[in-house]
Design a protein around this nucleic acid. Structure first.
Lengths: 337, 337
DNA sequence: ATCCATCATTTAATCGATTAAATAAACAAA
DNA sequence: TTTGTTTATTTAATCGATTAAATGATGGAT
């Protein structure tokens, strides 16, 4: 029950606590003979150094906070995996926090994390300004913003090139000859929502197609709104002949509606979606999608974090990862070529 | 950069550190007038209590370790979400560890977690004996085993009733009249793999069907083996007329093969799968599945954990959650009824 | 006037490590 | 012999909170 302390190890080994510490941490000036004594004392007592005490003294927790809306979203799950892998390789642990996209919860977690003296924070914020991250930034704790870019902050940001992804998807639909291309977009308060809409618009513009208000539906990046918006699109007077769905959850909802109504893809409606679902090739026709390098996104976020922590670098960048258009058949492309 | 300490707050407020501590933690015997002084001193300095120091003194970290093979697996992602929600409600944080099903990594993480003095561990172990969890158990840290049941341990276990789920699926196929029912099972070294196979066997037995070795394929619970095993089943002499795929990843792989070869479901092969994919209703025909209450599983695991931590209860249970057979059409059932 | 209980606050030890500074020993150089 | 350098180890302070025990007030009961 009670765990042995370094002091007890020292007593058993017949040396001072300083020597034990030096032995454990492989500092110089410890005779190998003494080292052996210390090691066997550790063995004998089954000693496990208390990281909390170490953290207090060294002023570092070796913990990085991860603040996301929901690990159950495959995008975040994959990102989280990448982050955790990379950080673990550097001997850092990840504290997982799900905010449900609630700014209020974000605040609460943040306060807790500050208290926990995390060494860094990787966050995909639901807020658009990020003002309440200031308190953390001021204490010198590095922050990496992931896929959401708050304004006015001096920290690293890593983003999928959302505008580009949306542009490519839209352009692909345009080239197929569709001229009533709809978008189910996310909240424009989020940079992801805004950027994907921008990419869509820019493509239309570049090809001289005027945007139709009726074809732009703003969802909430969740399943329900995906369903709703798809329904609206297909029940309204002015129907689209193609649609770009701007995230995975809304795709799930949107497809549910299409299946229920037995809408034929791509004949009645061509579809391209953002985020490449694991089932993309299992449905008929296979789904054309914009794939984000999710795992890599996590790994890179973690690398930026490690650089900030270790090198104490204060110059920060914004890093873009390119998404890839995975052409399958829901857009109207033939199966073989 | 340097953060204010309780001591500095005390100085500014003109009281002792003990009083500040009492004020913060709402102990009795602090005059409300003094409390106000303390609060405003905290405000003025933007004081955030150092949880690490608190943890050291109170001998509790308020952190629970979560040891799973991979958060990117939707099953674990959902479970993790449930756990985190419930623990957060009790003011505990979750430290996320992905082991990749490697016993070696499990060991390493475990050692780190012991050092970190986590207050509890929720684990879905890849090992079958769990002997190396002994060291943690001995220190009095409660462990909840999730979905995998190690032998010989005195701790809580929460499981989906895997045997039942597999039995129900197999029985359903039998009642459809299929008589060459295959299973793509997981490693039998894992209780999940073993139990699902047991359920399958029991159903066959109960209905007087003799098991055919050629129809039992042991995969590794991953996408690749799902593909392989499905391929084996359909390329061999003795082909099945129905198959039960025993987890989500193998389902993904198995379906990939079926799609490639344009196997018609359920005519050429009826299918029931373990774990209800989010795309179950989007493919044609919709997939009949055994759904585990994943989120609930997480919530319950966390509740067991909280009970162990708070009540210091030493009597431990094994808790079963019932899966549900979601009947759709891949098993051969008609669409409407 | 004395004693006691209750309320309010302070003093100082404590949690378990790290680490700067002090000390000691061994040996070489002048 | 004295001085200095390098190696090896110990002493004691420190990180920032909590908390048991000590101390001071205050007021009521006897």
């Amino acid at each position: 029950m009670k765990r042995p302390t370094l002091k007890e190890v020292a007593q058993l080994a017949g040396v001072s606590t300083a020597t034990v510490s030096n032995a454990i941490n492989d500092k110089k000036y410890v005779r190998s003979e003494v080292k052996e004594q210390v090691y066997s004392a550790m063995q004998a007592l089954n000693y496990q150094p208390n990281t909390i005490a170490k953290s207090l003294r060294k002023q570092e927790s070796r913990i990085v906070g991860l603040l996301i809306s929901d690990v159950a979203n495959p995008f975040f799950a994959s990102v989280a995996r990448g982050i955790e892998m990379e950080l673990a390789a550097n001997d850092y642990n990840v504290l997982l926090c799900n905010t449900d996209s609630s700014v209020e919860k974000e605040r609460e977690y943040l306060e807790g994390l500050i208290g926990k003296r995390i060494d860094g924070l990787i966050v995909s914020s639901a807020g658009n300004t990020g003002d309440y991250f200031r308190s953390m930034e001021e204490t010198g704790v590095p922050i990496v913003f992931l896929n959401r870019c708050p304004q006015f902050m001096n920290c690293d940001v890593i983003l999928t090139n959302n505008t580009r992804g949306a542009y490519d998807a839209t352009e692909h639909l345009i080239r197929h000859g569709y001229n009533r291309i709809a978008i189910i977009t996310g909240p424009t308060s989020l940079s992801t929502g805004k950027d994907r809409l921008t990419g869509y618009r820019r493509a239309l513009e570049d090809y001289g197609i005027s945007e139709q208000d009726a074809l732009v539906k703003e969802g909430r990046f969740d399943i329900e709104s995906g369903y709703e918006k798809m329904k609206e699109l297909l029940e309204q007077e002015y129907k689209p002949d193609a649609v770009f769905v701007s995230n995975n959850s809304m795709t799930l909802g949107g497809y549910k509606y299409l299946k229920e109504k037995e809408i034929s893809i791509p004949d009645q409606l061509a579809v391209i979606v953002f985020d490449d679902p694991d089932w993309a090739e299992l449905v008929d026709p296979p789904v054309t999608s914009v794939r984000q390098p999710t795992y890599e996104l996590g790994v890179q976020a973690a690398k930026l974090m490690m650089a900030s922590i270790k090198d104490r670098k204060t110059k920060h960048d914004i890093m873009y990862m390119d998404p890839a258009l995975i052409v399958r058949q829901s857009c109207g492309c033939p199966a073989d070529h």
